[in-house]
Design a protein around this nucleic acid. Structure first.
Lengths: 178, 178
DNA sequence: ACTGAAGACTTCATACCTAAAGTTCGACGC
DNA sequence: GCGTCGAACTTTAGGTATGAAGTCTTCAGT
């Protein structure tokens, strides 16, 4: 029907609703309402990560490095954490954390030193430059985020935040059924 | 104060609200409502990917392979696509797509052949085994997804889907300002 | 037809992640 | 005190991604 002359069909990318319609044909038991929520979540996150990646690249750091800066700032002054603590929060293996800290130390974003009171431990600390990069990235991010939510009223933002928080609580229950 | 005896402080992971409270101290211009939405989105997606990863691993495929199967099924019968088309939808480089198709071909999930009508093109086609794996993964995924949304009423699910779709439209506008 | 430009995929070099083994230090029992 | 266990981090090996260069096919101009 609406195909292009050659075989490519040019597929710019199927819209969410088109995608769900096909899924329903292929898989009868599908709840389209549920599928819409999870597919939108997944797509949205991919796009947002692309956007963040562009912003951090413009500042000369990677998205991965920004995650580390964020975790350190969130820990509060004096902005110090151990590698394994960082790894846990970022969902990385300790090995990956070691390498990432290597790179960030070389770039002057953090320092690494042994804890003198317990020499098994290592302390990663944010440098002034690291804090400054975090601030720059944060400024860019908040502009983007405000722009992203522009079409939602204050009330809607509140409702959305609540619902997402509830989903988050739920998924944490499912994963650690204490 | 509330610290554990040793130095670890055990940081199970800061709650969303704790995290935002620190952010506000460190960065005055932050809108906590906006931050709550984007942080919840990000965390939620990470958890969901972990859950999907467990399920697909149990079926003997990776999350990455499942993404390819999904794209092929969504394209509709006869479940054929070109590598670059797939790469675009999955957000990969063509090179990564080549390797992924290599692996999946070796595992019997898809076949790869040259398009005889245009010998520059390659056609990736879902095998019966690939379709069967997709179905298995889909069954597991829908159970998880239904479980995840369990606490939301039908009306809430609809509202959530609408809001996420609007955000998705917005982010697509921001990225391709046609 | 022949040549050059553009497109589709692959290959190569490099980067970063995971899993598992290795190293070093601190804690506990004898 | 001394030896063993366990914890925290690092190192190594292997897999999968990216970016750039290479190969092959098609299309358009002459």
């Amino acid at each position: 029907m609406g195909d292009t002359p050659d075989g490519t069909t040019s597929v710019p990318e199927p819209s969410l609703d088109e995608q769900i319609a096909v899924y329903q044909r292929e898989f009868q038991d599908l709840d389209p309402q549920v599928e819409k929520v999870v597919s939108a979540l997944s797509r949205l996150n991919r796009r947002m990560n692309v956007a963040y990646g562009r912003q951090t690249a413009a500042l000369g750091i990677s998205n991965a490095e920004w995650e580390v800066l964020k975790a350190l700032v969130i820990s509060g002054a004096p902005y110090r954490m151990g590698p394994s603590e960082l790894a846990k929060q970022l969902g990385l293996t300790p090995a990956a954390m070691t390498h990432r800290i290597d790179r960030m130390t070389a770039e002057g974003l953090v320092t690494r030193e042994r804890d003198e009171s317990n020499r098994v431990r290592v302390i990663v600390e944010l440098t002034d430059e690291g804090r400054s990069k975090w601030l720059d990235a944060m400024r860019a991010a908040t502009i983007f985020e405000e722009d992203l939510l522009q079409d939602l009223s204050t009330a809607e933002r509140g409702v959305l935040g609540d619902m997402l928080t509830r989903l988050l609580d739920r998924v944490e229950d499912l994963q650690s059924p204490s």
